[in-house]
Design a protein around this nucleic acid. Structure first.
Length: 299
DNA sequence: TGTTACCACCCTAAGTACGT
DNA sequence: ACGTACTTAGGGTGGTAACA
């Protein structure tokens, strides 16, 4: 390979091809036609003296040499992107930027909602694309650039991603405003006798760590609804005699419509943080967004 | 089970735009 | 004028679904 002749743009194409493993999709991502990317792939094959990607049943399969290239190539390109982005000042008032954020609906309400309101006044050209948090796909989504930032428990982040702690969350017990059995000083027994709503995002199960804590105290609660959405819980609770343990920031601004109480026994909370990929670490706009989120949760 | 139609994907060929 | 890299057009291959 002659580095004096090598078109470095080809390396961006190679990185995209190796991530997508599909010439058509890579072409779409690169804003080129499929034949143009096919031609670039041929030049890359010539430069590296290797097929790099072999046609498969669906898309292309990378050769061993191509797989060997992916990590160092990605690191090198991320360094270049970071170096360029660091020297480009981010003017929030004028910048055009779309940031893709993945999180649960609880964090959409607790973090993204105030972020959006802040952006409208401070950075009107910045748009947010919300994505569902898919832990199995997160690493690949971030590598592809489909997700820029995830809001989640930092301990659950895939290895290799950057994390920053935002806040520690705790649970509160909620019921409708005039719930006849909710009063300060509720006992564990009374708690267990209520009809509970829980959130189970994955399997729709009816057991959470709270049930283990209750069992240790010799009690068992009656879970009548396993919800797939946090936001649905205050809604159903305010129209029934059901109760629920929910993250405090989910209902902080609904105190007028709900009865909020401390849980009658200790329930472990959880940490919330930001997770992002090395590729967006040095990007001045992405950094501005991350700092904006930090200042929001600290406020 | 074999045939057919359709779709996804990649390739080559030919024409075009642009810089030197 | 020439070289490079793009686009559109069109063809080949292989998988899948519908149907007799």
């Amino acid at each position: 390979m002659d580095s004096k002749r090598l078109d470095l743009n080809l390396l961006v194409t190679l990185e995209t091809l190796l991530v997508e493993q599909n010439v058509t999709k890579a072409a779409t991502r690169l804003h080129l036609s499929q034949p143009a990317v096919s031609a670039q792939l041929n030049r890359l094959r010539h430069e590296f003296d290797d097929p790099l990607l072999i046609p498969a049943q669906r898309g292309m399969t990378p050769t061993a040499k191509a797989l060997e290239l992916l990590d160092p190539l990605r690191q090198a390109l991320d360094q270049v992107r970071g170096a360029v982005a660091r020297h480009r000042n981010f003017d929030a008032a004028k910048a055009k930027l779309t940031v893709a954020i993945a999180c649960t609906d609880y964090l959409q309400a607790a973090v993204v909602k105030p972020l959006i309101l802040k952006l409208r006044t401070r950075a009107p050209g910045v748009r947010v694309a919300l994505r569902n948090l898919d832990m199995a796909q997160l690493d690949a989504q971030m590598a592809r650039g489909d997700v820029d930032l995830a809001l989640m428990t930092p301990q659950a982040a895939p290895p290799g991603l950057r994390t920053r702690h935002l806040f520690d969350e705790h649970y509160v017990l909620i019921g409708r405003r005039n719930h006849p059995r909710l009063r300060d000083g509720i006992t564990v027994r009374e708690f267990a006798q209520l009809e509970h709503v829980i959130v189970s995002l994955g399997d729709g199960g009816f057991v959470t760590p709270v049930d283990d804590a209750l069992a240790a105290l010799g009690h068992r609660r009656n879970v009548v609804l396993s919800a797939a959405s946090f936001l649905f819980v205050p809604e159903i609770v305010s129209h029934s005699d059901f109760v629920a343990l929910v993250p405090e920031r989910l209902v902080r601004d609904r105190a007028a419509k709900l009865k909020l109480m401390d849980c009658p026994f200790p329930v472990e909370g959880f940490a919330v943080g930001m997770v992002w990929h090395e590729r967006s670490h040095g990007h001045s706009g992405q950094r501005w967004i991350r700092e904006a989120i930090v200042s929001l949760v600290d406020a």
